[in-house]
């Protein structure tokens, strides 16, 4: 999955889609996930990176990550499916 190139994501978590004019706010963890996805990291790399900083079960993380990806697709912030 790739985040659309023109999507603007600020350090504070403000996301702006210039095609639609929609804007969203993301929390710190969501921004971290977005940055990792934007950097082209694979799923396992993303999980390892997050589990280094956060105390979370892999199962929970997988579920939340999948929810997050669904949301990105629904908001048309990604180019194509993983």
């Amino acid at each position: 999955m790739k985040i659309k190139k023109n999507i603007a994501i600020s350090d504070s978590g403000f996301i702006f889609n210039p095609e639609t004019g929609e804007s969203y706010t993301a929390n710190i963890l969501a921004v971290k996930m977005l940055d990792l996805i934007k950097d082209g990291k694979e799923r396992d790399e993303i999980f390892n990176n997050i589990m280094e900083d956060y105390s979370v079960e892999l199962e929970t993380l997988e579920r939340d990550y999948n929810d997050f990806l669904s949301m990105l697709q629904r908001f048309q912030l990604v180019q194509d499916h993983e």
Binding site: N6, P18, E19, T20, G21, E22
Partner: peptide
């Protein structure tokens, strides 16, 4: 894109987009 629309349907706020 209209961001804020009055009860008359007029834009009270808007943002330039690039679709």
């Amino acid at each position: 894109r209209k961001q804020y629309i009055t009860d008359k349907g007029k834009a009270w706020g808007g943002i330039t987009i690039s679709d």
